[in-house]
Every structure is written in C-alpha cells, then in structure tokens.
Amino acid sequence: MRKLLLLLLAILIAGSMWLLLAQNPVSSSTSIQAKIADVKDYKYYLDKGNAAIGKDMTKLDLVIVEPIEMQQKYIDSAQKSGTLVYGYINAMEADKWNKALYHQLNEEDFYRNKQGEKVYFAEWDSYLMDMTSSHYQELLLTEIQKQIVQKGLDGVFLDTVGNINSYLPQDEQTWQNEAMLSFLQQIKKHNPELSVAQNWGFQTLADYTAPYVDFIMWEDFSYPVVGKDEWSLDMMQKLVHIRDEFGTQVMAISFEDETKSRVLAEKFDFKFFYSPAGSYYNTWQ
C-alpha cells in the first residue's frame, strides 16, 4: 500500500512538473544566451572555408561566417561539435557584390541625404540603405530565411547597425531606429528561436533593440583607441548595465595592442578576438 501511494505521488509530481514546463517553457533565447555567456573563444570570418578552417571551427565556442561563402559542410560540422554559428547579413548597407540581392532593390530602398543623393561607401563598394522602406525590410527578411534559417544556423549577425548613429543626421535617426526595432521584431516573429546579434549601434541598442539582441559587437576595441577615451569608458559601463538587464553579451574585437586590449576587455567580461588585419575578415587568424 505504501509503495502504491509513493508511486501515485511520484506520478502526480511528474505531471505537475510537465504542466509547469508546458505553461512556462524554457525559451531557446534563454538557452542560447547562457551558451553565449560561456563563450571563451570566437572568430569573425567572411570568406570560404577549407579543411583546416573547418577543423578549427569545431574547436570554437562561436563563429560568425558569411553564409553565402562558407560551405555548408563546415557549418554543420562546427554545430555538431557544439559551436554556435551566426550568419552575416548587411543591414544598413547593400553590397554590390551580392548581386542576387542587389538586383532586387528599388530606388525607394536607398537612403538619400538632404540633397537627394545616395550615400556610397567606396571602400566597401556599398550603398547606405533606408530601413524605413518596407520593401527593403522584406528583402532582408527573405535573405535571412534563405541564408540563415534554411541553412540551419543558430543566429543572424546584423552588420552596420551603427550606421544609423554614425552617418545619419540627428533628426532622422529616430525614424531609422524605430524601423530597425520593427525589423528585429519581424525577425523574431517569423523565427522566434533564431538568435539575433548586431554590430555597433550602441545607442540603438540602449534605446531600442536590447530586448531582442543576444550579443553586440564592438569593433576596434583597441586599447590605444578606447583605453583612456572618456566616451568609450562610459559606454563600457552602459553595456555592462544592458547585459545585466537583458543578457546582451559584448563581443570585442581589437585591431592593435592585443595584450592591453584583452586585459581591458576581460575587466568588463567582454568576449575578445584579435584581428591584426583590422576590419577585413578574409583571413583565418
């Protein structure tokens, strides 16, 4: 009789736990945030892979790749080993090399300055885009579905989000930031389990996107640049507060003075990657 009662009690407890989990499931966002928080070694690489690179990817905690370039077999192999793989998507710029996407653009998709001119970045052969364009957002959502979701990547890495604060007049930033927020909400609506990350755009993150972003990248987190700069030091503290509130991790990339830059990053518990080639990520380092 006692054994029967214990068995019934165990069944009731198990049933209650199942019901609790069904009503309050552990979200994939929480799970992936925990994995990102534990990241020690990561890389940012935007070219094709090879056998050696593929093997190295399996040893990393996280890697950001260009999904058009990186072969699927290396992505799959890395994920099987536990590596988080994020796919690059250029959010605020359109790269002319990506012809399949570029040829779908309408004139309304390009940002135009107060003189009515497009903004061209010669260094990258790209144009500044207008995130308030619903057509442009739809193109990017389709690109994410094709290059990220269908290839089974863990997340999307949105580059050039910082262009809003860096290149747009103050009176136009609110519109673009609100559009960026709407865009991220659409990503999560269509793919709630997909992790989202962004490059730069610290104020955009603080005021708009933090609830949807699992990590933000800080490029040129180089000690000679940020080590004694008041704005940078203040921003480091702000990012720590954002991380405490939303779980958004910081991926720091240094271009020079690796040792001092790493020490500074570790002081704030930022993830660290050294890129002596600067913001050119076509060499596996």
Rank of each mutant, 00 (worst) to 15 (best):
H103E: 08
N90S: 11
K96S: 02
W97F: 03
E93S: 10
E93W: 07
E117Q: 11
K114C: 10
E123G: 00
S126F: 02
Y127F: 14
V119T: 14
K99E: 07
E117V: 07
Y102K: 07
A91H: 08
D95G: 01
N106W: 01
Q104Y: 04
A122N: 02
N98V: 02
H103L: 07
N98H: 11
L105C: 03
D125E: 13
V119N: 00
G116P: 09
N106F: 03
F110E: 02
K118Q: 07
F110I: 08
M92I: 03
N98D: 10
W124I: 03
E93V: 02
L105I: 13
L101D: 07
E93N: 07
K96R: 14
Q115M: 08
D125I: 03
E108P: 07
R112G: 05
K114W: 13
M92L: 15
E107R: 05
L128C: 09
L128Y: 10
Y111L: 08
A91W: 06
H103M: 02
D125Y: 04
E123M: 00
N106T: 08
E123R: 01
Y127A: 05
Y111P: 08
E107M: 13
D95A: 15
Y127V: 14
D95N: 12
E107I: 09
R112L: 15
K99C: 02
F121P: 00
R112D: 11
N90F: 02
E107H: 06
K118A: 04
Y111E: 07
K99R: 10
E93L: 10
D109R: 12
K96Q: 04
N90L: 11
H103D: 09
D125G: 01
Q115F: 14
N90D: 12
N113P: 14
Y111S: 09
W124V: 05
Y120N: 04
K96L: 05
K118V: 15
A100V: 13
A94S: 11
K118S: 04
V119I: 11
D109K: 10
G116A: 13
E117T: 10
V119Y: 01
Y127N: 01
H103V: 06
N113M: 13
A91G: 08
A122K: 15
Y102N: 04
A91R: 07
E108D: 10
Y120F: 14
Y102E: 10
N90W: 08
D125N: 03
W97H: 11
Y111G: 11
H103G: 02
N106C: 14
G116K: 13
D125F: 00
W124E: 01
K114Q: 15
L128H: 06
K99V: 13
K114M: 13
L128W: 07
H103K: 08
L101A: 04
D125M: 03
Y111T: 12
L101G: 05
E107A: 12
E108Q: 13
K114S: 15
D125T: 09
N98S: 12
W124K: 00
D125Q: 03
D95H: 00
F121K: 04
K96M: 03
A100F: 05
Y127T: 11
N113K: 04
K99H: 03
M92D: 06
V119L: 08
Q104P: 02
A91F: 12
F110W: 04
R112F: 08
D109Y: 14
A94T: 14
N98G: 12
Y102A: 06
Q104R: 15
D95I: 12
L105D: 02
L128M: 11
L128N: 05
S126R: 00
L101P: 00
A100Y: 06
Q115W: 15
W124Y: 00
